[in-house]
Amino acid sequence: MNAALAKLFAKPWLWSFVGAFVVWLAAILFTGGYGAGGMVTAALALAVFTVIVGVGQMFVITLGPGNVDLSLPANIGLASAVAMKVMNGDDSLIAIGLLAALGCGLAIGIANYLLIWALRIPPIIATLSASFIIQSIDISYGRGLQIKPPPGFADFTNAQVFGVPILAILTILFTAGSAIALQRTIYGRSVLAIGQNIRAARLAGVKVAWTRFVTYALCGTLGGLNGALLAGYFRGANVDIGNEYLLASIAVVVIGGTSVAGGKANVPGIWGAALFLVLLLTMLNTFGVSAGVRLVMTGLIIVLVITAAGGEKAAR
C-alpha cells in the first residue's frame, strides 16, 4: 500500500493536478462554495488552448537544450486572422478556414525548421527571427480586421455537454493520442532519443533531421489550430490574441514534469499545469485583486512552483 502510494507520489505530473485542486479549493472557499462547478467548466474551456500549444511546445522542448518555439504567439495571431478572413462569417466555409489556419501554422513551422537547418542557428534565435517577421505580416494583414467568426464555429468552440466543453473532450482525446505517439511510435521514441543524446541517436540510425522537421512542423500546425479556435471562442481575431501563450506554453510543459534539458516528456502533466494556471487566475480574480497584484502573484507563483519542482541534477 505504502509502496504504491510512494510510487504514485513520485509521478511528477501528479503535483500539477494537486496544485490545480488546491487553487480551486481556495477559490471556492472564498466564495463559500458558490460557482464551484462553473469554475471548473470555465477552467476546462480555457485550459484547452494552453494544452494544445503546450503539447506542441512539449515535443519541441523534448528535442533537447535550446529547442523552444518562440514564434507561437505570432503564429497564433496570424492564424486567427487567416481563419477569420477565410471563413468570412460564413458557416459553409468553416472547414476551409480551419484548413487555412492549419496550413498557415504548418508553413510557419516549416519556415522555422528551414531557418534552423539552413542557417544552423539555435532554434531560439530562428523562431525569434521568424516571429519578428510573422508579427509584421499579421499587423499588416490583420489591420482593422473586424470579421466575426461564423455562428456555427463560435457555437462549436463554446459548446458544452453536461458542463464539459466539447473542445475539452476533443482535446483530452488528442492528448491521449499524443501520449501514445510519444511513448509508442517510432516518431515519439526518436524525439526522446534525440533529446537524450543527439549524437548517440544519430549513430543509432535515428532520422534526426526528419524528426526535428516533423516536430517543428507539428508545433507550428498546433499553433495555427489554436489561433483558429481562439478566434472562434473569443469571437474575433486579434494581433495580440496569442501573446500570453509564450509563457503559458513553456510553463505548462515545465510545471507538467517535462525536462527542459530534453529527452523526458510528460503529457498528462500538461493538463494539470494548464488547469493550475487557469484556476490560479480564476482564484486571483475571485479575490478581487487589481491587475498589478494579479500579475505579480502569477509571476511569483510560477517561479515558486518551478523552484519547488526543481531542475534535474546535472547528469555528470
Partner: peptide
C-alpha cells in the same frame, strides 16, 4: 527561460 518569464510578470 521559465524563471525569467515568470519574473517578467512580476
Amino acid at each position: 527561460i521559465v524563471v525569467t518569464l515568470g519574473m517578467s510578470f512580476v
